[in-house]
Computed example of a mutant assay.
Amino acid sequence: MRKKDLEATKHFFWVAGGRPTFKTLQCVFCKEEKPLEEFSEMQVAKATFDLHAPALTNVDVKLISCLKCTAPPRETLTCCKCSKTKPLDQFARVQRRNAERPRCLKCMKKHRDEDVNDSDPDYSSDGSSLSETWDDYS
Results as ranks from 00 to 15, higher is better:
Asp113Asn: 12
Cys104Leu: 05
Ser128Leu: 14
Val94Asp: 14
Leu36Phe: 11
Asp113Val: 01
Val94Arg: 11
Leu36Pro: 04
Pro20Trp: 02
Asp126Met: 07
Leu67His: 02
Gln43Thr: 02
Pro87Gln: 02
Ala71Gln: 13
Ala8Arg: 15
Phe22Ser: 05
Asp126Glu: 09
Cys69Ile: 03
Ser124Pro: 02
Pro73Asp: 10
Ile64Pro: 02
Thr70Glu: 00
Gln43Lys: 06
Gln43Trp: 00
Asp126Ser: 13
Cys80Asp: 10
Thr21Ala: 13
Val15His: 10
Lys46His: 05
Ser124Trp: 07
Ser119Arg: 14
Cys79Pro: 03
Glu38Cys: 09
Glu37Ser: 15
Asp60Tyr: 04
Cys79Met: 06
Gly18Glu: 08
Asp126Pro: 07
Leu67Cys: 13
Gln26Cys: 09
Arg74Asp: 05
Met1Gly: 14
Leu36Ser: 08
Cys82Asp: 11
Ala71Gly: 09
Arg19Gln: 07
Leu36His: 09
Pro72Gln: 03
Lys4Phe: 07
Asp113Lys: 08
Ser40Asn: 09
Thr133Arg: 08
Glu132His: 15
Lys34Cys: 00
Leu105His: 14
Ala53Thr: 04
Lys46Asn: 08
Pro73Met: 06
Arg2Ser: 14
Val59Arg: 06
Arg96Glu: 12
Asn117Ile: 03
His111Cys: 07
Asp115Tyr: 02
Asp115Cys: 07
Lys23Asn: 12
Glu75Cys: 05
Pro102Arg: 04
Gln26Asn: 10
Ser40Thr: 15
Gln26Leu: 00
Leu36Thr: 07
Thr24Ile: 14
Gln43Arg: 05
Lys110Gly: 05
Glu75Lys: 08
Lys34Gly: 03
Arg112Met: 08
Phe12Gln: 01
Arg74Thr: 15
Thr76Ile: 05
Asp136Gly: 01
Asp118Met: 05
Lys4Ala: 13
Thr9Trp: 10
Glu32Asn: 13
Asp120Val: 08
Lys34Pro: 00
Val28Tyr: 03
Arg101Leu: 06
Phe29Ala: 01
Pro102His: 05
Val61Gly: 02
Asn117Met: 11
Phe29Gln: 00
Phe49Glu: 02
Ala47Asp: 00
Asp120Tyr: 07
Phe22Cys: 09
Leu130Phe: 11
Lys81Asp: 08
Leu88His: 05
Glu41Arg: 15
Cys69Phe: 03
Arg101Phe: 05
Pro87Met: 01
Ser83Phe: 13
Gln43Pro: 07
His11Glu: 11
Glu132Arg: 15
Val116Ser: 11
Leu88Trp: 01
Asp115Val: 03
Gln95Arg: 12
Arg19Ile: 14
Val116Arg: 13
Lys10Leu: 10
Phe91Cys: 04
Lys46Val: 01
Cys69His: 05
Ser129Pro: 02
Tyr137Ile: 05
Lys34Leu: 10
Cys30Trp: 00
Asp5His: 13
Leu25His: 00
Asp115Phe: 00
Ser125Leu: 14
Thr76Asp: 10
Arg2Ile: 13
Cys69Val: 02
Thr70Lys: 00
Met42Arg: 14
Phe12Pro: 00
Met108Gln: 12
Glu33Ala: 03
Leu130Val: 13
Trp134Ala: 15
Leu56Met: 10
Met1Asp: 06
Asp120Lys: 14
Asp5Leu: 09
Leu77Gly: 01
Glu38Asn: 11
